[in-house]
């Protein structure tokens, strides 16, 4: 099956390994991955900020970069939700798009996954844009396939981490207060790894954790899945 990778701006700028892991995961599932190199941004930053004229221009360009008849897969519920839910609000057609785990769960449907080399006790942070995609427990379900990976339950797992894109800067104090409460919950079972499906949540939580002197290690879902390959 042929799929197209939407890398996302954060993976482009900071988290190249997440993009690489996504390709390896998709190839492990037998996919032929295309990476349209002209891709830049999906348009979500100006969309969320309220500049819909800019958002529409970027979204139109983004949609044009990808082939219409091939599914787009992206290691981000946030960007996937922008394409699936945001584009129609801008008056554009929603492209055929899957968040990485959603693609694994709904399309590729592997019955098993290779084992991590050694046992890892992790906690999982569900990113909020998964709500808009109605992901439910899809990401946890996919991680559940990985032998040697244990997901510990956390308090108030449905609470946001406080990132919120530009909100993290325009409302920095509030964002950090929300994030600190999230870190308290994530850190309580003293996990070896904090796993999430969105680089935005990870960037915010990692930065906050490091500044506050906590010792937590953060990984993207794609990285965990690729580590087991």
């Amino acid at each position: 099956m042929r799929v197209q990778l939407l890398l996302t701006c954060l993976c482009d700028a900071f988290y190249g390994e997440v993009g690489i892991a996504s390709v390896r995961v998709l190839e492990h599932l037998g996919c032929e991955v295309a990476f349209p190199k002209e891709q830049t941004c999906c348009g979500q930053p100006p969309f969320n900020a309220g500049d819909w004229a800019s958002a529409r221009a970027i979204a139109e360009r983004c949609a044009g970069v990808f082939q219409e008849d091939l599914p787009i897969v992206t290691p981000s519920a946030s960007c996937a939700a922008m394409l699936a839910e945001g584009y129609p609000m801008l008056g554009l057609d929603a492209p055929q798009v899957f968040e990485l785990c959603q693609f694994i769960d709904e399309v590729a449907k592997p019955s098993s996954w290779p084992s991590l080399p050694s046992p890892v006790r992790a906690v999982f942070h569900r990113s909020c844009h998964g709500r808009m995609l109605h992901l439910g427990a899809v990401q946890e379900r996919v991680l559940g396939l990985v032998p040697n990976l244990t997901l510990e339950p956390i308090e108030d797992a449905d609470q946001c981490c406080g990132f919120g894109g530009a909100f993290s800067v325009t409302h920095g104090g509030t964002s950090v207060a929300i994030g600190s409460a999230k870190l308290d919950a994530l850190g309580a079972p003293t996990p070896e790894r904090v796993v999430s499906g969105d680089a935005g949540c990870l960037m915010h939580l990692d930065g906050l954790s490091a500044r506050s002197g906590r010792v937590l290690k953060f990984s993207h879902v794609a990285e965990i899945l690729a580590e087991a390959l």
Binding site: L7, C11, D12, A13, F14, Y15, G16, E17, G19, I20, K37, S168, V169, T170, G172, G173, V176, M203, H204, D206, G207, L208, A210, R211
Partner: peptide
């Protein structure tokens, strides 16, 4: 910047995808 007021700045981690 406002990000680093309370958070460490994000750094490029590992390889560049492109």
């Amino acid at each position: 910047n406002p990000w680093t007021a309370n958070r460490e700045r994000p750094q490029r981690q590992g390889r560049d995808f492109r």
